[in-house]
Design a protein around this nucleic acid. Sequence first.
DNA 1: CTGAAAGCGCTAACAG
DNA 2: CTGTTAGCGCTTTCAG
Lengths: 343, 343
Amino acid sequence: MSVTIYDIAEHARVSIATVSRVFNEHPRVSEATRRRVFRVADELGYEPHASAQSLARKNTQIVSAVVPMMTSFFFMEVLRGMQDRLDESDHDLLVYAARTLDRVDGQLARALQRGRADGMLLASTPITPSRARRLAASRRPLVLVDSYHEDFDSVTIDNVRGGADAVRHLLARGHERIGLLLPLAESVPGRDRLDGARQAFREADVDLDPQLVVRAEWDTEMHGFTRYAGYRAMQQLLALPASERPTAVFACADVMALGALRAAREAGLSVPGDLEVVGFDDIESSAYVGLTTFRQPMVEMGTLATELLLRRMREPDTEPSHTVFAPRLVVRETTGAATTALA
Amino acid sequence: MSVTIYDIAEHARVSIATVSRVFNEHPRVSEATRRRVFRVADELGYEPHASAQSLARKNTQIVSAVVPMMTSFFFMEVLRGMQDRLDESDHDLLVYAARTLDRVDGQLARALQRGRADGMLLASTPITPSRARRLAASRRPLVLVDSYHEDFDSVTIDNVRGGADAVRHLLARGHERIGLLLPLAESVPGRDRLDGARQAFREADVDLDPQLVVRAEWDTEMHGFTRYAGYRAMQQLLALPASERPTAVFACADVMALGALRAAREAGLSVPGDLEVVGFDDIESSAYVGLTTFRQPMVEMGTLATELLLRRMREPDTEPSHTVFAPRLVVRETTGAATTALA
DNA sequence: CTGAAAGCGCTAACAG
DNA sequence: CTGTTAGCGCTTTCAG
């Protein structure tokens, strides 16, 4: 069997309490015994048993992250940020990835199990009243990433502003007939971006032709956030009589924009010549394709969220904080810029 | 405080042993008490304490995955596969992501901590003798993904064959002056792909001009597996006198190929007109760019590796198994095909 | 500065 | 079918 503090205690001729103290850097241990214990410990190859520590300490040094993997790139970047911060404070990360949004609740349940993790990061998941209740009832330190609820700490980006800026960018480039490629109505970021877009149209006093607003009805389990959904939605726009077609399109997500680009290409349209396109997210492929889009500081969101979580784990009873990042427009070729940067 | 089996025992007027039995689906419990216990349990909102179970059972129901994140896409796909399999058998996943290869050992140490996880998946990490010793000494069930060592179960793809097929594809398309974009010599997959390539040249009786073999000396902490490294390496090839330049290039990784594409474009070359390109990996961007490349069954590798791990956790003393997948050539536009499929 | 002893919450013989 | 009783390995009073 593997070695325990009892073995060390025996060999070092001290009590297990002392061994424990040594490993927990308790101040009042004589230098002599400290050394002796350490020496014996690594002669024997001792390593503390995580579960036993967790049980006795009533904490696990583990943080869990529940994430729908729809947007794998987004998640990976956030994960990077989380890891960085977690490594610093010696916490481990339990990942509960859900392939689709409806599987999130199952993963949530597992992540919430008593004695599994000390805190939880929940990403890109709409907080319904029922989820909010469950989460509150669990009394687990929690930080929301890319979704919002007043009762919990959150780190989000300003989707309304992003939607508005997207349309403004297109209006500024002289477009009036601007198409909108939307995900399902259930998508909160989708709704916000649409709100923003609407707002920009109003400001500019431009009418938004309802024909040009297409809601993705495909891949609904992904809320329409797929290439295919974007592809089909774009085809629908392209099926309009030539004079009624949009001259530019704002797709609510890069994946959709990429599908749209494809549809445009197949229809023989040149981008940006015949059609300009703006996306949202700045996923990895976007730089290659030269897609104009909005960048979110994903890594930073991950580290900040983790930072907040660690703080909340320390001080559970502070007011929830809400950080909103501004999406940054990245202009590339699909809205007529000359060159793509080698990101 | 949260509710324990003692509370339930008290309320249900049974012993804690019975409560435990009920929750562990022990056969010999009367239906009546079973029901009573369950009823009381969820009246009280009981939930077993994971750490306590782990300590008593001597297992955690947790599997850890140690992964360098250099290739985030590859990792995400493998992760998907792992999650799928893990969900089925109710295991949780501890992720130890390392930003660079030299941080892998640190993460390994954490993943190996006693009482943290019952088994470990280790991805894309060269197994040096010293690592092999540590891993063997830990006696932890282990499966290697995308790397090989005779002592441990492994799931890999046949890089030698991939390298050979890449060159064969190019030779078959009539190229003789084929450039090779390689990562650092430390990279095992890189070496294998090169070996394969060499082999293909020999078979075809074509000489490989040493000038056309470029080793990426940039981004060494990533073993040269970056866009930038590919970009610079390609520039080096393009700096050759026109008559000595390659007419086709095999890049050992898609990220490098993408960088190479960029360099070619900047140099005013058209692809595939002036230069054909083959990559390796089939990352997400490749489909958009139309890059001809080799696809690895990443999700499948993840599930299989997990399957093997779970088996080894059950039967620790079986011979290590080694599964080798064949990379599949995906022909796209960079080697002259007409259309890209909308994957 | 150090030891004894009582948990942490659950599992698993061993009796009955 | 059910209860009693040791642990699992570590932390943490409470004494000394």
